[in-house]
Design a protein around this nucleic acid. Structure first.
Lengths: 182, 182
DNA sequence: GCTGAAGACTTAGAAGCTAAAATTCGAAGG
DNA sequence: CCTTCGAATTTTAGCTTCTAAGTCTTCAGC
């Protein structure tokens, strides 16, 4: 069923053996995939977390930067919009924006054409931080996949998207926000 | 660089296109793997979270149950040990154990042979909850992997463990505790 | 018997989140 | 023109879970 965390961790093989000992019905092949996937993801998140921390931004900031950049130029969204994309309540968004404004990553201003609305816009510094984080991330990712041939990579991408389609179909847009950093 | 969360989420393809638009140096093949992996993991965590919630236990409880079960019969560990395995401070462990004792999932008693130590022991109910969660999880996992042939499964397990070995070697036992539910 | 170290617990405080109330503005109807 | 409703945001209060630092208890060596 995957993995948990941290130091003093058993190896993948040890853990699967323990699972089999405690739960007879376990398919070790399935468990291997699921546990490896989970561990891999955690390690990646640790790496990303370090990189963004090195840039002086937190994981919560990172999520907002990403949403704004992916929305495309001119990199503007309302708090409500952002909240929807990130799966948060509007109140939580207000707090994040407060922090990020003081950090200089975004600006907040009222929309002059409809003064109920607020516009959150990426600053040049915010965009630069995002780009820098992406540069670090791609180095890490390239290193991670270093041993895989182009064919291996294609095959892996295919399998994973196949699995993803399956979950997304079964669990259409869950909206859950159970951790995830990238 | 992976994915974030929730509702109103773009499709994987849309997101990769947006990344390429905003960051020219991106290798779409790499990004596809990384993003699919991240999304897949998040969906799995959402599913696990629902299942454990349905059993009336939280994600934090689940981690402790798992550590105890995996330690093997008689399912006893000290708070300090548990804290190390879960990557928490001892203080955080104290709070978790408090809660879980009132929930009837574990018992806490002093070790009579060395009264400085405390022994946390899984109750029958705690063990039963763990087993039930595992049953639900395996159903979900089997469904997830349904379309993969045994050969596909073996291949996927191999590739993932290969990647995992690579990260674990580069990042030996980071101890990080940046989210993860399983 | 005293002292030091180890282990667990307590307290204080930080980071994030939610829910619900308050605020502000625009739009529609009398 | 004024009023009222509704939408979007912010404020307030409180929850959960974590860390850091200090305290208490107990064992072990001198």
């Amino acid at each position: 069923m995957g993995d948990t965390s941290g130091a003093g961790e058993p190896t993948l093989e040890e853990q699967i053996a323990a699972y089999q000992r405690e739960f007879q019905d376990l398919d070790p092949q399935v468990e291997k995939i699921v546990s490896a996937l989970s561990r891999l993801n955690r390690r990646m998140n640790v790496a990303y977390g370090r990189q963004t921390a090195a840039l002086g931004i937190g994981n919560t900031d990172w999520e907002v930067l990403k949403a704004l950049v992916l929305s495309g130029a001119p990199y503007r969204l309302g708090p409500g919009d952002l909240a929807k994309r990130l799966g948060l309540t509007p109140a939580a968004m207000t707090h994040r924006i407060d922090r990020m404004v003081t950090e200089g990553l975004v600006t907040r201003e009222r929309d002059e054409s409809n003064r109920v609305r607020v516009i959150v816009e990426l600053t040049a510094e915010g965009r630069e931080k995002w780009l820098e984080a992406m540069r670090l991330a791609t180095v890490f990712e390239e290193d991670l996949l270093q041993d895989l041939s182009p064919e291996d990579r294609t095959a892996l991408g295919e399998v994973l998207t196949r699995l993803l389609r399956r979950v997304e179909h079964a669990q259409p847009d869950a909206g859950g926000r159970l951790s995830d950093l990238d």
